[in-house]
Simulated assay, not measured.
Amino acid sequence: MTAGCSSGRRYAVRNEEGRVSKRPGCVWCGIDGGKGHHWAAVVDETGTTVWSKKIDNDESAILTALGEILDLADEVRWAVDISGTPSALLLALLAAHGQQAVYVPGRTVNRMAGAYRGEAKTDARDAYVIAETARHRRDLATIGVPVQLAADLTLLTSHRTDLVADRVRLINRLRDVLTGIFPALERDSGRRTGNLHRPKRYSRRLRRVFYLSAQTSIIREGPNRDFYLKKRGEGLKHVQAIIALARRRASVLWALLRDNRVFTFLPPATQTA
């Protein structure tokens, strides 16, 4: 018998090629925590590993893994073997996305590992054992994330969003300065005879900035989260919805630069003939 999920049903969904595939209703994610990195393993209701990767103990890496795992099933049950400082960022990010984790003590992991002989002790194996323990047991304690920690994380992510916006403004100012000194650069800067257009060449680093800023913007209530939820409701996976949001935010920024105006929640007044 499995624990934690309301049901073990599978739902038929269509992949990008239009083929019908079986999506599990619930999966269990076990995380072997560490200071520098974590290892996460995801199992379905049969105990089969469906996802297993090393995750750097970094916000962007954790958010990327979080998105991939949430796309695996309709419900994800999380379990960790460390509830202290090494997993503080991980637990705070889970809480910010409405996810909770249970605590699997190290002694329990060691006892359960005896049932899975034949493999050497590795981070991947420990993560699998943690996931399997969470799948079978119902008596594991839920880890509560302090309200202050979640609030601090929200403040930090908001500050990071501001820094990203400052970076974008700095890049635009730098572009204007460079094209003023060397007008030939206008071929690549997106400016022709005073009009802005979307350039064919782009910065991959800047594209990643837009992706990460879109990912952090959905934590707080507002138009960014509303747009993300709308795309999820249209059937897009987490990563696809984030990319759509990043493109939308880039389009809005481009329009602001084109029209030389500042952002407002209300649409600009249209000029009547």
Rank of each mutant, 00 (worst) to 15 (best):
I82L: 10
S83R: 10
S83M: 02
G84F: 01
T85N: 10
T85C: 00
S87T: 15
S87P: 02
A88L: 12
L89M: 02
L89N: 01
L90F: 13
A92K: 00
A92L: 07
L93E: 00
L93G: 00
L94E: 11
L94R: 03
A95M: 01
A95I: 05
Q99K: 11
Q99G: 00
Q99R: 14
Q100A: 14
Q100P: 05
Q100M: 05
V102Q: 07
V102I: 14
P105T: 04
R107E: 09
R107I: 04
T108D: 10
T108Q: 08
N110I: 11
N110M: 07
R111W: 13
M112E: 15
M112S: 12
A113M: 10
A113H: 06
A115W: 06
Y116E: 05
G118D: 06
A120T: 14
K121Q: 13
K121R: 11
A124G: 02
R125Y: 01
D126E: 13
D126G: 08
A127C: 06
Y128W: 04
Y128G: 05
Y128F: 13
V129I: 15
V129R: 00
I130L: 12
A131W: 00
A131H: 02
E132C: 09
T133H: 01
T133R: 02
H136W: 12
R137C: 00
R138L: 11
L140I: 08
L140A: 12
L140K: 07
A141E: 06
A141M: 15
I143A: 03
I143W: 10
G144Q: 10
G144C: 08
G144Y: 09
G144I: 11
P146N: 09
V147S: 07
V147P: 05
V147M: 03
L149T: 01
L149G: 01
A150I: 13
D152M: 14
L153R: 01
T154I: 06
L156A: 11
T157S: 11
S158L: 08
H159M: 03
H159E: 07
H159K: 03
R160Y: 08
R160H: 01
T161C: 02
L163D: 12
V164I: 15
A165Y: 05
D166G: 04
R167C: 12
R167W: 09
V168F: 15
R169T: 15
R169L: 15
